[in-house]
Amino acid sequence: MSIVIAILVIGFIALLFGALLGYASIRFKVEGDPLAEQIDDLLPQTQCGQCGYPGCKPYADAVANGEAINKCAPGGEETIKKIAELMGVEVQALDENHATDNTPKVAFIIEEDCIGCTKCIQACPVDAIIGTTKQMHTVIVDECTGCDLCVAPCPVDCIEMRPIETTKQSWQWDLNSIPVTQVD
């Protein structure tokens, strides 16, 4: 007998809570997914497409939906760490398929060779190349994200990626890199 009572009581409670949960699920529904925005903020915004997505935002959306977090080569380990922290998942090593040399670089147009075809301008995701048809183009160094998307489209191979030069401001106090010159 007591079992029947137990079943009835539990059944009633379950009914009640089920209704409550059903109500709550509709009443407190969260719209949108701010996670993708947060991930996007962590990405380096090179818009380089090395992750297999057309730009950083699409990759951020993909990560929010379960894509691997280790595909951003320009961001490197630092970015993976941050995303892992944000999403509460484990840090992974950079995907080998996406691992490249990620020293910061900027595009440089060898101006003698440029024929002004504007192909690189169209390829640049951040409008960092200026120039006009049949005129030589040039790279706005400060806007260039170093994504190297402009390199491939150039018909005359006049674009090369050059590492960013160290200046007094950007010097990282690496004393070992100082050449100790042998002066007589």
């Binding site: 106090w173 004393l175 100082i178 100790v180 010159t181 042998q182 002066v183 007589d184």
Partner: peptide
């Protein structure tokens, strides 16, 4: 001569 590099 070569000098020794160190940080202050």
């Amino acid at each position: 001569m070569a000098f020794w590099i160190a940080s202050s």
